[in-house]
């Protein structure tokens, strides 16, 4: 087996050179149709973009690029679109490459991500953490590192899946194969692409709260949202059961276990709505 610390360097080197990530074909088609339709509003377009972590990252990356002058400031699709405008957005979508092959279970990751985004937003509103839309963005992007694994490290990713089947925990399997876990991989890519610090810290610490320094509350929130969506069973990740949970998150957020029921009551209708979208997505992917 390769030395994990060597592999870690190699992985980071490859991420640094990553020019972009491919998006899901049906999302690109829908976006094109929406943009071409003059009746669509910015909000409608933003709503759709916010269902795909790859395009969201791309839009944020452009709005935050030092060249255009807003490094590390723009953290929601709505804000980014105000700065970029429809004309530039059109060209941006045009330059998106698409996933050639993606397995059906991998699409489950998209579903999981929109679920966590919805749950994180609800938690932010309940606990009055600002700004809920930004928190939702972090929820959407939290497993970006897994997308990177699927695209840039296809064989290693299969190896991770095999190790998980053999009974290893997903994080442990990633560490053995890559020397770095998906949380850090995603955060590292977001750093390369100048995304705001708060988003990066949340993504980086979503499985390990000790990694959060400045944004402890936000990180705890994402940690909890990820658990709740796993527990509800929405979408698919490498976790068959639940990811490890740090109960400190509840203390930091001042969430009483009795409140969990209330969160689920609010989340359920949102997931129901999203299900229409993700089911259609899955149908079109196969």
């Amino acid at each position: 087996m390769a030395d994990p610390s060597e592999k870690r360097k190699e992985v980071k080197k490859k991420i640094r050179k990553l020019e972009g990530l491919p998006a899901l074909p049906p999302i690109i088609q829908k976006l094109n149709a929406l943009i071409e339709d003059e009746r669509s509003s910015l909000t409608q377009i933003a709503d759709l973009i916010e269902k795909d972590q790859v395009i969201t990252t791309k839009v944020l990356r452009l709005a935050n690029s030092a060249f255009y002058g807003f490094p590390r400031k723009v953290s929601t699709v709505q804000q980014a679109m105000m700065l970029l405008g429809i004309n530039v957005l059109k060209i941006l979508i045009m330059t998106s490459s698409i996933f050639e092959i993606i397995s059906k279970e991998d699409v489950g990751l998209w579903e999981h991500s929109v679920g966590v985004a919805a749950c994180a937003k609800i938690l932010a509103e309940m606990k009055e953490v600002s700004d809920p839309q930004e928190i939702a963005t972090a929820g959407l992007l939290h497993d970006l590192g897994k997308v990177v694994q699927m695209i840039a490290f296809k064989e290693d990713y299969e190896e991770v899946k095999r190790k998980v089947e053999d009974g290893l925990s997903p994080l442990q399997a990633e560490l053995e194969v890559f020397g770095i876990d998906h949380a850090e991989m995603g955060a590292f890519l977001m750093m390369q692409w100048n995304l705001p610090e708060r988003l990066i810290e949340m993504v980086n610490s979503h499985h390990d709260l000790s990694r959060s320094k400045k944004y402890r509350k936000e990180s705890a929130l994402l940690h909890l949202a990820d658990l709740l969506v796993h527990a509800r069973g929405y979408g698919e990740t490498t976790y068959v059961g639940l990811p490890p949970f740090d109960p400190k998150a509840l203390t930091i957020l001042k969430v009483d276990p009795s409140e969990i029921k209330e969160i689920y009551l609010k989340l359920e209708p949102r997931l129901y709505e999203l299900k229409f979208f993700t089911e259609e997505l899955k149908r079109e992917m196969t």
Binding site: Y68, G69, F70, L83, L84, G85, I86, V88
Partner: peptide, 18 residues
């Protein structure tokens, strides 16, 4: 301050051109 100005310029530009 410069960033805010660039920001305002972009908003003006995109809004008008749309």
């Amino acid at each position: 301050g410069d960033e805010v100005i660039k920001n305002l310029a972009r908003i003006l530009q995109t809004t008008i051109l749309e």
